[in-house]
Amino acid sequence: MDTDNTIDINRELLSAYLDDALTKADRARIEMLLRVSDSLRSELAEMVRMRQLFAAWSPPAPDRFFVRRVDIKIQEEVARMKNRWGLQKFATAAILLISIGSLAFLTQRLDKTVEPVTLDAFLQSSLDREVREVASLTEDDFSKDRVLDLVLSDNTR
């Protein structure tokens, strides 16, 4: 006597038999069972009829503008993608330009504010200043007080 489980397995095989999706061995098994089982034959007949029932059912067709609507949406999407790509390129170019501009500006500023001074140039410029100061002295500047002032101011500089 078949258990419930065996019956279920056979019915599942029957469903696959209907779809011609059984292995040779399973097909032979179910065909043997069909020969001896009225209930299984009846169940197969019901499955076939249900299939006929659904074969009579036809889903409605899309309207004739469906393809056009999809075409329009696709082309809109393409345009949007192109715009997005264009904006991205523009933004990248702008960032690059700003970066290069800033770099150039900073380099220029740096050139002007920090002039490289060699030791020789520094000494020469100090000597020139001393010479100019001495040359600009008048007779009064050689008075005792004035010389003292100059010496003191030099020492405190």
Binding site: P59, P60, A61, P62, F66, V70, K73
Partner: peptide, 30 residues
């Protein structure tokens, strides 16, 4: 567009069979 023309009926039918509503099927197929 050629692919849409070739496959739209079957896609629409499948979607309608699964959803069972005309408007929703149209939107989902698109």
């Amino acid at each position: 567009s050629v692919l849409v023309k070739r496959h739209h009926e079957r896609v629409y039918n499948t979607v309608y069979s699964l959803i069972g509503d005309l408007d929703e099927s149209d939107d989902l197929a698109q």
